[in-house]
């Protein structure tokens, strides 16, 4: 799908320019923006190196594990189908805390482990279980504490206050996550209702 969107953006732009007489501007934009993208990616190195470095210390210091322990009671309420001492809950917790700290690379393998455990609980069926969908929703609403990459981009474009957006972003994430959980419940009850 993304391949088609990409083709359409470039193709529509060039065809539109043929008629609007902006071909010169398009020509310039191609080379300017490519250079701009490289500058941006290089500039992002600073914040990514700093943040991933910090997160490695946090991980070793047990901050992620500590947080996982705090959230355990809440998580077992959100996943009523998973037994309280099942390893699936452990993986879910580590995945969510890794995501909260923007450790996407660490979060993905943990998430896959969590999914595998949930699949075992679901008799290895190829149909998504209620817990799997809830877990997926929690991942797509992206509970992130600090949006590192966005802050990096804002720094690159000389924002007066690159971190100004952190508070609102956190608030929006929380609203999205809560809404996601409510929507998940509604869909679940609708699906059981239909069956019975």
């Amino acid at each position: 799908m993304i391949n088609w969107i990409w083709i359409c953006m470039a193709a529509i732009g060039i065809i539109y320019a043929m008629f609007s007489g902006n071909m010169e501007a398009v020509n310039e934009a191609i080379f300017d923006s490519a250079a701009q993208a490289v500058t941006l990616a290089i500039g992002l190195i600073s914040i990514l190196v700093f943040w991933l470095g910090m997160m490695r210390i946090a991980e070793e210091a047990g901050i992620l594990r500590g947080l996982a322990r705090i959230f355990r009671p809440i998580i077992s309420k959100i996943f009523p189908e998973i037994p309280k001492d099942h390893p699936a809950l452990g993986y879910i917790l580590s995945n969510l805390t890794a995501n909260m700290f923007g450790l996407g690379n660490a979060a993905t393998p943990l998430g896959i482990k969590a999914m595998e455990e949930m699949k075992k609980l679901n008799n290895n069926s190829d149909t998504a279980s209620r817990s799997m969908i809830t877990f997926l929703i929690l991942n797509t609403t992206g509970l992130t504490l600090i949006p590192t990459t966005v802050i990096g981009i804002r720094m690159q474009y000389e924002s007066a206050s690159p971190t100004q957006i952190v508070g609102v972003t956190l608030l929006v994430t929380c609203i999205g996550t809560i809404a996601g959980l409510i929507i998940d419940r509604i869909f679940y009850y609708k699906s059981t209702w239909r069956k019975s």
Binding site: A37, V38, I42
Partner: peptide
Amino acid sequence: GGKEGIKTAVSLLPFLVGMITAISILRSSG
């Protein structure tokens, strides 16, 4: 840990070049 940051930024580079260029074409054409 910081070494991973370099890898992440470098691997983002081609995505950013591709996307930003396509959007710029769309914008500059009007």
